[in-house]
Simulated scan of single mutants.
Amino acid sequence: MRLLNRRCGQIQPYLTERVHQLSMEKLEELGESLLDFSSISDLEGWLQNNS
C-alpha cells in the first residue's frame, strides 16, 4: 500500500479494500505492474482486469 500511495497518490478506501482482497499471487503481479503505473486510473484498470 505504501508503494501504491507513493506511485499513484492517496488511494481511496474502496480501492484499498479491493487490493486487500487480492490473493498473494495477484499481489505479486500487482507489485510488478505497479512499476508501470503513472496514475490512479492505471490501478483502477489493473484491478478491473485482474480481480
Rank of each mutant, 00 (worst) to 15 (best):
D36M: 03
P13R: 01
F37I: 10
E29W: 00
L43K: 12
P13W: 01
L15H: 12
F37G: 13
L30G: 07
E29N: 11
N50F: 00
L35S: 06
V19I: 10
G31E: 06
S38L: 00
E29Q: 08
Y14N: 03
H20D: 07
V19E: 07
Q12I: 11
G9T: 11
L22W: 14
H20A: 11
R6D: 08
L43W: 06
I40E: 15
E44H: 01
L3G: 05
D42T: 10
W46M: 02
E29G: 02
L15E: 10
S51P: 02
Q21S: 13
L43H: 08
Q48N: 07
E28T: 12
I11E: 12
Q12D: 15
L30K: 09
D36A: 08
T16W: 03
I40M: 08
Q12A: 15
L30D: 10
L35Q: 02
L47E: 08
I40N: 10
M1S: 11
S51R: 06
E25C: 00
W46D: 08
Q12T: 12
M1L: 08
H20S: 09
C8P: 15
L3R: 03
L15F: 09
Q10H: 05
Q48S: 09
L43I: 05
L34P: 06
S39L: 00
L47T: 04
P13D: 13
S51N: 09
L35I: 15
E44L: 01
N5E: 13
E32M: 12
S39T: 12
G9K: 01
Q21T: 05
L15V: 03
E32L: 15
S39M: 01
S33L: 00
L47Y: 06
L35A: 09
I40W: 00
E32W: 03
L4F: 12
N50A: 01
